[in-house]
């Protein structure tokens, strides 16, 4: 997590108030450092996004087992599938899923990485993108 200057200033003021004005600068510096470090330990997923929704899109040559492979991989990361839709055109399939990853222990980047492996095994394409990009582009 990155703190803005104002946030750091606020933490510093709070620390000075707690410790009183009689302590040396070094003591305050140490205390502020500790506080910031403890803040930084907060896992990213809990402060990262307003909505944990992610849209998964997959294409490729149709064959048995694709939905099974994708969903079992997602299940392993505790991703909740909220909606799923599929089209088959000729030999090709398109799958779109809306996922809630807020209860997953992994963040979007890690899930993307894992799904990339699944995509390689099946020789299909899988994209995961945060929902916001679709909301911004298609909803006013």
């Amino acid at each position: 997590m990155k703190l803005s200057e104002n946030e750091i200033r606020k933490i510093t003021y709070e620390t000075i108030e707690e410790l009183g004005t009689n302590v040396s600068q070094d003591v305050i510096k140490e205390a502020v450092k500790k506080k910031i470090e403890s803040l930084n330990n907060v896992p990213l997923s809990s402060i990262n996004e307003s909505s944990g929704k992610v849209i998964l899109t997959s294409f490729g040559l149709n064959k048995p087992g694709i939905v099974a492979a994708i969903t079992s991989a997602l299940g392993n990361f505790n991703c909740d599938i909220q909606d799923l839709s599929q089209r088959i055109i000729g030999d090709f399939f398109t799958i779109i899923m809306i996922l809630d990853i807020s209860s997953s222990s992994k963040d979007l980047k890690e899930i993307q990485e894992e799904m990339r492996k699944t995509a390689e095994q099946l020789n299909i394409k899988i994209y995961l993108q945060h929902e916001d990009v679709f909301r911004f582009m298609h909803r006013i």
Binding site: T57, T94, F134
Partner: peptide, 10 residues
């Protein structure tokens, strides 16, 4: 929430 075509367009 989104149309199939909208997602594919993006």
């Amino acid at each position: 929430n989104y149309e199939f075509t909208e997602i594919l367009e993006t």
